[in-house]
Simulated assay, not measured.
Amino acid sequence: MRRSPDSEGRIGTGPARRRGSPMRIEVDRNRCEGHAMCEAVAPEFFSVDDEGELTVKAEEVPEPDKAAVHAAVLSCPVTALKLSSR
Rank of each mutant, 00 (worst) to 15 (best):
A67N: 04
R3V: 08
E39L: 04
L74A: 07
K82S: 11
L81V: 14
P43R: 01
S84D: 11
N30D: 11
V73Y: 02
R3S: 08
P22I: 12
E59N: 12
S75L: 08
R86T: 07
E33A: 11
G9I: 11
E51N: 11
H70T: 11
H35Y: 13
E26R: 15
D65P: 02
V61C: 10
C76Y: 14
D65T: 02
D6A: 09
R17Y: 07
V56T: 05
E8R: 13
T79G: 00
I11L: 08
I11T: 08
V78M: 07
D49C: 04
G20Y: 13
A72P: 04
S75M: 02
S84L: 11
V61L: 04
R19E: 10
R24P: 10
N30A: 10
D6S: 00
P22Q: 01
D6P: 03
A36Y: 05
L54C: 12
I25Y: 03
R24G: 02
K82W: 06
D6Q: 00
V41M: 06
V56S: 15
L54F: 03
L54P: 08
P22W: 14
P64I: 04
P15E: 01
R17T: 03
D65R: 13
S21L: 09
T55M: 09
A72Y: 15
E8W: 12
D50W: 08
F45C: 12
E39D: 10
E51W: 14
A40L: 12
G20T: 01
L74C: 02
S47Q: 10
E26D: 10
V78C: 04
P77Y: 00
D6K: 01
E8M: 13
G52F: 01
A16K: 05
F46I: 03
S21T: 07
S85N: 06
V78P: 10
G52R: 00
D6T: 08
E63K: 05
K82E: 07
S47Y: 12
D65C: 10
H35G: 06
T79F: 14
L81A: 15
R10W: 04
T13D: 03
N30S: 15
N30G: 03
V78Y: 09
V78A: 00
A67Q: 07
M1P: 13
A67K: 09
A42E: 10
V73P: 02
D65M: 14
R17S: 09
M23E: 12
P5F: 10
H35L: 09
V41W: 06
K57D: 15
E51V: 14
F46M: 15
V61G: 03
C32Y: 00
I11N: 00
A80T: 05
P5A: 02
E33T: 01
